[in-house]
Amino acid sequence: MASEGKPVNPPGTYLKRQDLERLPGIIRYKPSARYLFAAGQALSRFLKGLKEGKILGVRCPVCGRVYVPPRAYCEYCHAPTSEWVELPGTGVVHTAVVSYIATDRSRMEKPEIVGVIRLDAPGYREDSYEFAGLFHKICGVTPEQVMDGSVIGMRVKPRWKPPEERTGSITDIECFEPVEGGEQ
């Protein structure tokens, strides 16, 4: 049995942050990569639905699954999805968190609450592993409510932007907010 553990003397040369800037031969490079992402047929229609204040899903003609957000094909059957379904937009909070940091890890001035919404959609059992759902912001609740657990399972509905401000984007929904008197 070896007394000295492996790995023995792992190599590597640590640098402090300030050493990095002063290092001879350090190369600073700023990439500039711009993209235009195609939404494709299914998502384009979904985004147009958002502009009209509707949450749309699609149904697989073979297995009957309803997909939200919609896909052009069923993941299980690989069949083209065929039928559009308009959802009521209501649902329950699957999970919710309070963010104190922005995308680049800088501190946010005001914390933001985000989560996953399990949408009311035909064909899913109440506690099924898969469900129709969206990732979005949650408003009208406090960080304390997120932390004490009362937000999970809460009934919510989309708060839409005024029609003239909608652009056909996921942000046409400002956030999901509690359904009045609908807390369960």
């Binding site: 993209y35 992402f37 939404a39």
Partner: peptide, 8 residues
């Protein structure tokens, strides 16, 4: 069809 701009 909708296209979304983005960057790295």
């Amino acid at each position: 069809l909708v296209h979304f701009p983005g960057s790295q």
